[in-house]
C-alpha cells in the first residue's frame, strides 16, 4: 500500500517542476541575460540588469519599501497584540462574535478595502470635507507615505492578530494558574509566561504582515498616488509598461533574496521553529 500510494504524488512532482521550479529558473536566467526573450538564442549572459539596480534611485526605492513595511509591521504588532489578547480572554459567548466582526473586513475584497481609504483620505475625500465643514485647514495625507502606511496597517492587521490569537488560545490554563499560585501577579505572569509562549505567533504574524507589505504595488499605487514608488511598483512597471523583463527579473530576484534574509533572521529569533506550519 505504502509503495503504491506514494505514486499519487508523482503527477504533482511533474506539476511543481513545470509551474513552480521552471518559472523561477526562467526569472533567474532572464535576470542574468540580455536580448530578446522571445528568441532564446539571442540571449547572452549579462550583469547589466543588476548593474542598473545599483543606482541611488533604485536603492532608495528598495530602502523605502523596507522602511514602510517595517513601520507597518511594527504598528500592526503594537495595535494587534492587545486585540488578540482581549479576544482570547473574552467570555466564551462573546469570543465567536468578536472574532467574526474582526474578520468581516478581511473577507471584503482587498482592492475595495484600499479603495475605501482612497475615498476617505484623498484631497477632496471624506476627512477633508469634514474638516472644511467645521472650518479647519485640510490635511494632505494622500498621496503620501502616511496614507500608504495606513493602507498597509488596515489591510494586514488581521494577519498579525490571527496567529497571535491562535497561540494565545492554545495556552494551557493550568500554566497560568501555576504562575499565579507561585506568587506571580498579572503583570509578571504576562511578561514571564504568556508573552514568551506567544513568540511563535508573533513571528508568524510579523512574517505574514511584512511579506505582503514589502512587496505590494497596489497600496502604494492607489494611496501613494503613483508618487510613492515601492519595489513592487518598480517590478510591475518593468513587466507591464517598460517591457524590460531582464531588469524586472533582476528586481524580483533581489526582492526574494532580501525577504529570504529577513526571514532567516526571524526564524533564528524563533527557537522552536516549526517551519511554515506555524503560519496557520
Amino acid at each position: 500500500m505504502k509503495n503504491k500510494a506514494k505514486l499519487l504524488a508523482y503527477p504533482y512532482v511533474v506539476w511543481i517542476a513545470i509551474f513552480i521550479i521552471v518559472p523561477l529558473v526562467l526569472v533567474l536566467v532572464y535576470s542574468f541575460t540580455e536580448g530578446n526573450i522571445h528568441n532564446p538564442s539571442s540571449l547572452t549572459f549579462s550583469l547589466k540588469s543588476y548593474d542598473k539596480f545599483f543606482n541611488i534611485l533604485y536603492l532608495n526605492i528598495l530602502w523605502k519599501s523596507f522602511k514602510l513595511a517595517f513601520i507597518s509591521t511594527f504598528l500592526c504588532l503594537i495595535l494587534g497584540y492587545p486585540v488578540a489578547l482581549i479576544i482570547s480572554k473574552a467570555k466564551a459567548k462573546y469570543k465567536g462574535i468578536l472574532l467574526l466582526f474582526f474578520l468581516v473586513p478581511i473577507w471584503m475584497n482587498f482592492l475595495l478595502r484600499t479603495y475605501a481609504w482612497m475615498a476617505i483620505l484623498s484631497p477632496n475625500g471624506f476627512i477633508n470635507r469634514l474638516l472644511q465643514l467645521i472650518g479647519l485647514p485640510t490635511l494632505a495625507i494622500m498621496p503620501g507615505q502616511t496614507a500608504v502606511v495606513i493602507g498597509m496597517v488596515y489591510n494586514f492587521l488581521p494577519f498579525m492578530v490571527l496567529p497571535i490569537y491562535t497561540v494565545l488560545s492554545k495556552i494551557d490554563k493550568n500554566v497560568l494558574e501555576a504562575a499565579m499560585d507561585l506568587g506571580a501577579n498579572k503583570i509578571i505572569t504576562f511578561i514571564k509566561v504568556i508573552f514568551p509562549l506567544t513568540v511563535p505567533g508573533i513571528i508568524s504574524g510579523i512574517t505574514m504582515v511584512f511579506m505582503p507589505a514589502v512587496s505590494t504595488f497596489v497600496i502604494s499605487q492607489l494611496l501613494g498616488g503613483g508618487k510613492e514608488l515601492l519595489i513592487g511598483n518598480l517590478i510591475e512597471q518593468q513587466f507591464t509598461v517598460q517591457r524590460d523583463w531582464h531588469f524586472g527579473s533582476a528586481l524580483s530576484i533581489i526582492l526574494m533574496i532580501m525577504i529570504l534574509i529577513s526571514m532567516a533572521f526571524m526564524s533564528k529569533a524563533d527557537k522552536d521553529d516549526e517551519g511554515g506550519a506555524a503560519l496557520w
Partner: peptide, 15 residues
C-alpha cells in the same frame, strides 16, 4: 505560499 505574490505572478507570466 512564502514567495511574495508579485514574484509568483511574474514568474508564471514569464513561463
Amino acid at each position: 505560499v512564502l514567495n511574495p505574490d508579485i514574484v509568483t505572478g511574474v514568474a508564471l507570466m514569464t513561463l
